[in-house]
């Protein structure tokens, strides 16, 4: 396990390096000059040149890259061109809403999808199964903004149970925090519920045909425990895999969802940074997202060893 973990952690280095090179070049090879953006409409050529000088953008690309990587290795993500703040400060300030939304969404998803998936598998072919599968098709095909606006219309505008938009920091209390998150998290979770419920159903259905399920029944075990204790854990590896992927997709998808629900997280930060050609912020956020992806993948792989004693690294 130890050596395996070390090997996997070392393997993230080249991945991150490739991402770094890619995002660095992408920003500099696409049109749009940050200095011109900062200078504004009335800046003279000389003034823009001066700004470029101070930002270090007139150095050769290789020099810029080496300086950037060097700073990152020392824990310095640089200063934002646009916000005029340390990028690390910006990220710290914006990470809470993003993580909150992703986590709450994933919790909702798992809490809904796994039980209905198990139930559908257990009563496969019955009307329960058909309803779950029908919902699953629906969940795939209805766009998230339709669900979002539908939920807002019913629960915020008609019933006034939840706020329409916005975010409340967890520091202000858990109740207002969750109150603001329920609708966006529900809207976001629909497609993942559809996906994971389907996955759970297939996976559990397969396991229910196994001999050890028959053994458990032959012992006189109740059906609930046969499902929860024997079937679900054996079916868990594919389910956990898709839950992990769903989480990664969620974190990466915040750019869109935070714009829709007006949540001041990393997604909105990214949008602002892109619109303003804020190179240091974009680079840092993209690197952070890719690090999260790699770590989630590692966590998924490690979770296999907890779920199945036959898997050892």
């Amino acid at each position: 396990m130890g050596p395996y973990l070390l090997k996997r952690l070392l393997a993230t280095i080249p991945v991150m390096l490739v991402v770094a090179v890619f995002i660095f070049l992408l920003l500099r090879l696409t049109p749009g000059d940050p200095a011109a953006m900062i200078g504004g409409d009335y800046a003279t050529e000389a003034q823009i040149d001066e700004i470029r000088q101070t930002l270090g953008l007139n150095e050769p690309l290789l020099t810029q890259f080496v300086i950037w990587i060097g700073n990152i290795l020392q824990g310095d993500l640089g200063e934002s061109f646009f916000f005029k703040k340390q990028v690390s400060e910006l990220i710290v300030a914006r990470i809470e809403p993003t993580l909150s939304l992703s986590l709450v969404t994933i919790i909702f998803t798992v809490a809904i999808a796994v039980p209905i998936g198990v139930l559908a598998a257990y009563r496969h072919g019955s009307w329960i199964d058909r309803i779950v599968m029908g919902f699953s098709v629906l969940g795939f095909s209805v766009p998230v903004f339709v669900i979002g606006f539908g939920l807002i219309y019913v629960f915020s505008l008609q019933l006034s149970w939840f706020p329409v938009q916005g975010y409340n920091r967890i520091g202000n209390g858990v109740t207002p925090w969750i109150h603001n998150l329920i609708l966006p998290a529900l809207a976001l979770s629909v497609i993942f519920v559809a996906f994971i419920a389907r996955m759970t159903r297939t996976s559990v259905l397969e396991v229910l045909g196994e001999d050890y399920i028959r053994t458990a029944r032959a012992k006189g075990q109740t059906e609930t425990k046969v499902l929860m204790r024997h079937a679900l854990r054996n079916a868990a590896v594919p389910i956990v895999t898709v839950i992990g992927f769903a989480f990664a997709i969620l974190v990466g998808g915040v750019v869109v969802t935070e714009s829709v629900f007006n949540i001041p997280g990393l997604g909105l930060l990214t949008v602002d940074a892109v619109l303003n050609r804020d190179f240091p912020t974009i680079q840092a956020v993209v690197l952070l997202f890719s690090l999260v992806y790699v770590m989630i993948n590692l966590a998924i792989d490690l979770s296999y060893t907890l779920l199945d004693p036959r898997i050892r690294y």
Binding site: E210, D211, Y212, R214, N234, D308, P309, R310
Partner: peptide, 10 residues
């Protein structure tokens, strides 16, 4: 089948 009659994860 003793190979499959026992729950592999318990």
């Amino acid at each position: 089948e003793p190979m499959t009659a026992l729950n592999p994860v318990a």
